[in-house]
Amino acid sequence: MEIQDLKNVGAQVRRDIVRQVHSSQSGHPGGSLGCTDMVVALYFREMKINENKNAEGFLQFVREGIGEDLFFLSNGHISPLFYSVLARRGYFPVSEMSTFRKINSRLQGHPATHEHLPGIRVASGSLGQGLSVACGAAYAKRLRKDDRFVYVMMGDGEQQEGQVWEAVQFAPHHKLDNLIAIIDWNGQQIDGPTEVVMNNLDLKAKYEAFGWDTVDLDNGNNMEHVVESLKQAKAKTGKGKPVVILMRTGMGYGVDYMMGTHKWHGAAPNDDQLLVALNQLPVTLGDY
């Protein structure tokens, strides 16, 4: 997909995010909006996925994902983004987004496999676990000589979890050079700016010290830059080291009053705020 088309998808996904969170009056819009461009670029351009369709016309989802690129969302609270991208990509009906966080829904507050939502391979939400799972999946691909890639997204606040560093140590030791991690480095977490809550300091230096190759993405909300960073990351695979994209984003990007603040990490807009937000986000693919 071309850059302009990716931008159009991104605009619609941002509308979906805000509408889902508004409808259930709960959820996490800030990080979802910030990571939209990257997840859209992955699913609509970068990743090779199984394009076969089932009888209902939706993408056939096979959990093992042999011969496919895999994506794991470790910071599972940005589920409204994940659900929107999966639905827009064709895994399930876009209308199902109206059930987000509601009773008897497959769209749980945090991504889950339990209700068999196509596109989800593992539950996430309790932070710090996704990189480990991605390491296992990358190891499995190497074992069966599957040359596709494993992508995993994490938050920057999530880097405070000890388990992340167990996995950061594991991946280079086992030379998982088919693994591409992406850190949403937005500098915000629930209790405030990351540098105040628990300073991550220099994540690039840390990952390099652990044996990773790194790619700097100075603006993760610029689609051209996002696509370029993925190209760079892919070029660094297959050389004995895992790769991490250090992605600078603005939390809440796309909705002016949500931008650059931790206050919209896990808060829902009211009816008036919804209208203000939707006025800033054009309809491109049609609302669900």
């Binding site: 480990s132 799972v133 296992g136 388990q163 030791h173």
Partner: peptide, 25 residues
């Protein structure tokens, strides 16, 4: 080739196991 040493890092071992399992191992 079917043994994975994870070092003293049990949390990661469980996650890596989950990743292997969902991949069919």
């Amino acid at each position: 080739e079917r043994f994975i040493q994870v070092g003293i890092a049990e949390a990661n071992m469980i996650g890596v196991s989950a990743g292997l399992a969902l991949s069919g191992y």
